[in-house]
Structure formats: C-alpha cells, structure tokens
C-alpha cells in the first residue's frame, strides 16, 4: 500500500477514534463503546509486548542464556504470583507477595523518612541560618513557611481532638492547603488544556483536503446518528407509552 494511502487511513482512524471518545461528553453511545474496547485491547496488547521484550527477555531470558543462574530466584518469585489461578497451590503466591511487600517497604520507608521528615525539617529551618543577611521580605517568607508547615501538620494530627488553639491552628493549616491546591489545580488545568489543544490541532490537520475532510465527515456522520437515534428512540418510547 502506498505511503499516502496509509497516512490518509491513519488520519481517518485517528480522527474517528478521537471524536468517538469525545462523543462521551454528550452521552454514552456505540461509537464510544467501540473506541473504549479498542483502546482497552490495544492498551493490554501494548503492555504485554513491553513486558515481554523489555522485561522478560533482557532481565530473565538473556541472563539465563549467559548462564547467570541467579536470576532464577526472582523469576521463580515472579512466577509464584501466577499460582493464584490454581486454587490448590495458590498459597505459593504468598511468597512472591511477601517479598514484593517487604521489598517495597524497605525501599519506601528510608526514602520517605529522608524526604518527608529530615529534609522537611532541614528545608524549613535552613533559611534562618542567614538571618543577618536576609531582607525583611525573605524573613517574612521564611517565617510564613515555618508557620505553614506547623499548621498543616496540626491539621493532620489525629491524636488530639481539634478544639481551642488546636482548631485555630488547624484552620490556618487548611488555608495553606487550599492555597496550594488552588495553585496545583490551575497548573494542572493549564497542562490539560495544552493536551486538548494538541488533539484539536490534530483534528484540524485531519480536516484538510489531503485527508479527504476526515474530521468534518466523521463529525457530520455522528451528528446525523444522534439526530436519528434521538428521533427513533423518542418514537419508540412514545409507542411504548401508548401500548401501556
């Protein structure tokens, strides 16, 4: 098949799947279901080959071919997870799961302790080391950060009932959290809009004459479908009510 034909076919498939998925914003429909199931299958197929060629082959198969027998241990632990599907020996999978949990905790706890705990304290008090050289604004900023850290921690303190001073500090903590969440929300929404513009840009490209107006034709086709579906569904409901 010539390259241009493939490109045009790709444009039609891409425009079609994008519009099918966007159609969910109106309501659930067969086109969305097609795109949904296709996406699900393609996603699984993609990850299957990734695990096969990027994990199993380089990390198990090739070392075994090079007589590196040590990889048998993690490979067996991994295989033990599959025994879940055989009820009689499903207990074997517990070894794999236990190792997974232990390994994960061992990795996460020291890292969490270092970043969330020690670095948090160090980072908050560090600006005060330069107290004599800092401007009034920097000093205010440093105090604000320290107060913010303490108040937010008070909010997440579960051992005491939040009443009196604790409640006041906790409320201040909520304000700090909300300011952060507002900033995070704005930041993420901007990023999401850039993704949306990317899709719109593609749809615009697919609407060209070279692509045989893929976007417009698919869009019009779907609008016709929704009008007809609405018309016949309405008729069906009305006749059903009459029969009743």
């Amino acid at each position: 098949m010539p390259d241009t034909t493939l490109l045009i076919a790709g444009a039609w498939i891409s425009a079609g799947l994008t519009i099918f998925l966007f159609s969910f914003l109106y309501k659930d429909n067969p086109f969305f279901k097609i795109a949904e199931h296709l996406y699900l299958g393609a996603g699984m197929g993609w990850w299957f080959q990734v695990y096969l060629f990027d994990v199993l082959k380089p990390k198990v198969w090739l070392p075994l071919m090079n007589h590196d027998w040590l990889v048998i241990i993690p490979a067996l632990l991994g295989l033990s997870l599959i025994t879940q599907f055989i009820p009689k020996i499903s207990w074997v999978s517990r070894y794999g799961f236990t190792f997974l949990m232990g390994y994960g905790s061992g990795l996460a706890i020291p890292a969490g302790l270092a970043t969330d705990f020690i670095n948090q304290i160090g980072g908050t008090i560090q600006p005060f080391a330069n107290l004599t050289g800092m401007s009034a604004f920097t000093f205010f900023n440093s105090v604000l950060m320290a107060v913010g850290v303490i108040c937010v921690l008070v909010y997440f303190f579960f051992s005491l009932e939040h009443t009196g001073v604790i409640k006041k500090a906790s409320n201040v903590g909520i304000y700090f959290l909300m300011i952060y969440f507002g900033a995070a929300f704005g930041n993420t929404v901007m990023a999401r809009f850039s993704l949306l513009y990317g899709r719109f840009d593609k749809l615009y490209a697919f609407s060209s004459r070279e692509n045989f107006y893929a976007t417009q034709i698919i869009l019009i086709g779907m609008v016709i479908y929704f009008i007809l579906h609405g018309f016949f569904a309405g008729k069906k409901t009305a006749s059903g009510e009459e029969a009743a």
Partner: peptide, 8 residues
C-alpha cells in the same frame, strides 16, 4: 494496566 484505557 494502561492508565487511560482503564479510565475509559
């Protein structure tokens, strides 16, 4: 195990 196909 694909993020967006899971979401869809």
């Amino acid at each position: 195990q694909d993020q967006f196909s899971y979401a869809a």
